[in-house]
Design a protein around this nucleic acid. Structure first.
Lengths: 238, 238
DNA sequence: CGGAGGTTTGACCACACTCAAGCTGCGTGG
DNA sequence: CCACGCAGCTTGAGTGTGGTCAAACCTCCG
């Protein structure tokens, strides 16, 4: 297991990166690598909350189903992100893989123990949790925008940032991890409206669509203007 | 200062309640009680983040101003709630008093020290932070609802819960801490639409308005139906 | 009493939703 | 290899809800 850590692609970005080598090994002994496929459900709302995990690769969505049966996407999780409601007996939300994903999972009991023993881990998780909160606030800002125009533009920009390695500049060419329906869902719009806005952006030469999921950013500056919102920032957790 | 703790109305709900008596006294020695008036700004986005605080009484709103100058309410804070982005050098958001409020403030340095020395405090803050995150998700659900109808209904219900002492049952008669503009803002609606929905609810006998801020809940059950959303839950932090 | 800020109500209009029809990409099987 | 089917996406036409603009109305305070 310590071998897994040695080659772990998120070893110096994940929560466990704050641990020293011996602490990390102790934690790793309790961790289990798990692979899940696109569409697989990691946690299901209402289930007993017996585990938590760090995402190693892939992408997840956090959703809830409201009473009338509508799904609602609350957050996206990207590699190095941490998933787990440590203080709730039952899961409040569904967590579903958007793409094939690899995780490092821990039983709730083991993680609770680790938090007790390694105060720096508690602080790292606190920091991460506050960052998640910040991202939720950014998403809230996004959904609060009035025009469909701005919403779609801002989301595209956020996805471009997330797809890019360099933290500041958006990727010029990337694949959306979300379907039209999922985008619509996040923005509080309908599939058709999202699709129409993308068409509009393409017609005005700001983007180009490459197949159903691919996006080429031709003119990020105008996206920022037409869609307003100078960088609502990365909405994804990583 | 330890005297202040003895009579503190939130002494067994706030983050510091996890400390034992000697720890609490050590923390209290670093705390300062502060009174602020309605509309006063506690933190201002962009300011250096040199302090954090527990709300003792009153109510706060957390807002951000997006580039086009629109305010957006991201969260409400009620007594025993904790405010402070512990890991950001600069404040990301404004924090403003909705009513006259009393706070127990700590310098950033002191709080960082306390977190180091008292691991249980770090855990308490982590828990609180995850609860805040949960509430942000609930608010996200609320703003995602399609009809203005549902949004206003759900918000009323949430405010009624927050105003009530008993955790489950909504208060039958209470004052809204928010102006129409602030409600509209939270829900992604306009002032006029919020006002119209309230009129509609009043006409159908579900609520009665008492002055500008007062609300009497005549028929919470129908509010829940007409506004749907079986208890989106308390959106306020406490 | 007067003024100001917040609230309510109305008339009108636009933007996004609904419904419905094609279209594209893709995997399966003949 | 093409035919088929399916799911997701795009596009169109018509409607309705909530936005915009504007005026009247409270309520609180000086």
């Amino acid at each position: 297991m310590s071998f897994a850590c040695d080659t772990c692609p998120v070893r110096d970005r994940a929560a466990c990166s704050v641990l020293d080598e011996s602490e990390r090994q102790a934690l790793a002994a309790a961790g289990r690598i798990r692979d899940i496929g696109r569409g697989d459900i990691l946690f299901h709302a209402g289930d007993e909350m017996t585990a938590c995990a760090t995402l190693i690769s892939g992408a997840l969505k956090v959703t809830s189903i409201d009473p009338d049966g509508e799904e609602r996407i609350l957050a996206l999780v990207h590699p190095s992100g941490f998933i787990g409601e440590m203080f709730q007996p039952f899961a409040q939300f569904d967590v579903v893989a958007l793409t094939d994903s690899k995780l490092c999972t821990f039983s709730r009991a083991n993680m609770d123990g680790a938090i007790e023993r390694f105060p720096s881990l508690a602080r790292a998780l606190l920091r991460r949790s506050q960052e998640d909160l910040h991202r939720a606030h950014l998403l809230l800002q996004l959904t609060g925008k009035h025009s469909a125009n701005e919403k779609v533009g801002s989301l595209l920009l956020a996805m471009a940032q997330a797809a890019s390695d360099s933290p500041c500049h958006p990727a010029a060419l990337f694949d959306l991890p979300l379907s039209r329906g999922e985008m619509a869902n996040m923005l509080g719009l309908t599939i058709e409206t999202v699709s129409r806005q993308l068409s509009r952006l393409e017609k005005s030469g700001i983007i180009r669509r490459e197949g159903a999921r691919g996006i080429a950013l031709l003119d990020p500056a105008r996206l920022r203007l037409s869609g307003i919102s100078p960088a609502v920032g990365p909405i994804v957790s990583h």
